[in-house]
Nucleic acid binder design. Structure first.
Lengths: 236, 236
DNA sequence: ACGAGATTTCGACAGTAAACGAATTACGAC
DNA sequence: GTCGTAATTCGTTTACTGTCGAAATCTCGT
């Protein structure tokens, strides 16, 4: 399962390293935070131990994004194999109270994605509105109940960095509650996708509410894990 | 004034760009988010416009951290000059509800900093505990009142990424309230610094409470903006 | 205090990033 | 549709990254 925590932490680490005056020190700091010896890291990266040492000592003043990314990812991967203890430790610093339990996945694309294509790859049926628009990311909301109990401040977080996005509600029964949740807040996503439900099972009021906020509504029966895997790794 | 929002956003941007499969696209995305034309960016960076284009088109597959950092910083600088509209727009995504008003500054160092040196550069007088230890960062808390109203979840955020840090309370009167705030929570910083107060003005109970949690307490009369500037840019 | 293993330093080198500037193409305004 | 400005593409140069491997150095356990 793709972890929001993991990618948030990765982003924080990469950001800190990249902005640092001495990326080497930042790199070392994080490796030490994860309590991973240089040798283990270099093994996993398939490079000689001297490489790690060279970076950390600052011999390379401005390592490329590829290297930084690979190192960050490897640190996290090693930690995950050991039970994710450090990721756990840092997770309280991320995303305030809203985490995995509520948001199953949240992702921003680097360019505008045509909603038509997006919906196609996850097998959507159009219920209302137009598919002819662009989105920049998506959010998969896991538990509607949990969402309803969030403070408005926290709620806004499900919108990530742009409301030009699709919000996917898992295990919808009639689709009414998700639409109510959207209705009562001021931020409107471009598109709502109801997962785990057939077009015929959707409550008729859903289309009405959607039109009022000019939101496109679709449904899909595809398994949620398959959806997430597809959406995360798709090259648009 | 150093803005927490600004550096948080910078970190997010840099992280996203660094971890991206195509840093060029991420770079472009952010420049466009800020609505800054390539020419303006290149001017500000003092490079030819083709440089920007080359990065964004992906001719450089793995730009160095220095370049990414400079571009991110320049985008933010240009936005700030235009009133910080975009920074504002994105700030709701950062740091949940806790922001500038409460936390005046928050910073993590890349290596352990001796508390002795740290306290010396900001002109501290030791009141209780030992100066012979290491810290990894600091937090400047602006308004004690605001702090007291935070939820525990939010409160923990003042600890940043490690409790091995100094927490500086501005405009202390007797130092009692800050210590109470610390007392009632489970996370303990290594050191509390009371700003804007003389050693003789500190309430005697402060030392007692500090000993109980084994926290070093100091005070300083140095101006808070000077403190922040000093601490941010100091090379240890 | 010794030695094995881990870590760091450093010379070498191939490949690529960083930058320029000229040539080309795209985009608005009229 | 044409002109002018802005943006992109691309050839070229220089400097530095990315990597190795050998040698030097550090760090523990006994």
């Amino acid at each position: 399962m793709t972890s929001v925590k993991r990618s948030q932490l990765a982003e924080k680490m990469a950001g800190e390293i990249t902005l640092s005056d001495s990326p080497g020190h930042a790199l070392r700091k994080w490796r030490m935070n994860f309590e991973i010896p240089p040798g283990v890291l270099s093994d996993r990266l398939g490079v000689s131990p001297s490489v790690i040492s060279d970076y950390e000592s600052g011999r390379r003043k401005s390592p490329g994004t590829a290297v930084v990314g690979k190192i960050v990812d490897t640190l996290l991967a090693i930690d995950e194999e050991n039970g994710g203890k450090q990721i756990q430790k840092f997770s309280s610093m991320l995303f305030s109270g809203v985490d995995n339990d509520v948001i199953y996945d949240l992702h921003e694309y680097e360019r505008a994605v045509p909603l038509g294509e997006f919906s196609e790859v996850i097998g959507c049926t159009l219920l209302s509105g137009s598919v002819d628009q662009l989105i920049f990311g998506y959010t998969v909301v896991n538990s509607l109940n949990a969402i309803l109990q969030l403070s408005s401040d926290e709620f806004n977080r499900i919108y990530g960095w742009s409301t030009e996005r699709a919000v996917i509600f898992t295990n919808a029964s009639t689709g009414k509650s998700p639409m109510v949740a959207i209705r009562v807040t001021s931020f409107k996503p471009r598109c709502v996708i109801l997962q785990g439900i057939e077009a015929t099972e959707v409550h008729p009021i859903v289309a009405k509410m959607a039109e009022r906020d000019r939101i496109t509504v679709m449904c899909t029966g595809m398994d949620i894990d398959k959806i997430v895997t597809t959406l995360r790794h798709k090259e648009w």
